[in-house]
Amino acid sequence: MDDAVQSPEINTFSLAVLRDRLLPDLLQEDEANILYWAGKGLATRESLTSITTIEVYFNRAGFGNLKALAHKGSEIEWILSGPVVLARLTERDEPNFYLEAGFLAQIIETLVNVGTETTLKIEDEEVHFTTLCEQAIDLPI
């Protein structure tokens, strides 16, 4: 296959077209809720066993560069950045990162066997996630 067809720029563009043009049209006002639950569903099919494997998965899945920043008690702080995130932030005024949030919530819930929820906030050229657990957890970062 031609190298130009597989370039990262084209993959970033195709992701932006799907995530930020097609899905919003299909899902409309339910986009955030559906994508959050889709992310949770996707996570149930993955066998990730550590923070590092989650970070690697995000990169391989084309979500962006994920980094766990801090863990204190029942909260884990994450940051998502990189060319994919920047392209999506440029493509759409309010891009939706709820697929990634749902994925984080479910994969952490699976790892620690405690109910979780993940919230997000977009700042500058990054997405900040906070995973909240029902109780304090012991998970090395």
Rank of each mutant, 00 (worst) to 15 (best):
P8G: 03
D2A: 11
G41S: 13
D93K: 08
L69H: 09
L42F: 07
T12N: 09
E109P: 10
E46N: 02
I137W: 09
A68P: 01
E31Q: 03
F13A: 15
N59S: 06
H128Q: 13
D138V: 14
G41T: 10
P8M: 03
S74T: 06
I108C: 02
W37P: 09
S7T: 13
E94S: 09
E9H: 03
L99I: 13
F103Y: 02
I54L: 11
L69Y: 12
I51Y: 03
E91I: 15
R45H: 10
I76S: 10
L15W: 12
A32D: 11
T118Y: 09
L48N: 03
N59V: 03
V112C: 15
I137L: 02
A4I: 08
V85L: 14
S81V: 04
R45K: 15
A32P: 13
K40D: 05
E100C: 05
G82W: 14
A61H: 14
L42V: 12
R60C: 11
S14D: 07
F129W: 14
T52H: 06
L132E: 04
E123H: 10
R60W: 04
A105L: 08
T130A: 00
V5S: 07
L80N: 04
K72P: 02
V5Q: 12
V5I: 15
A101N: 02
K67L: 04
T131H: 01
T52F: 08
E123K: 14
I122K: 03
L48E: 01
I34N: 03
E123L: 07
T49N: 05
V127W: 06
T119Y: 01
L80R: 00
T110W: 03
G62S: 04
V5E: 11
N113I: 10
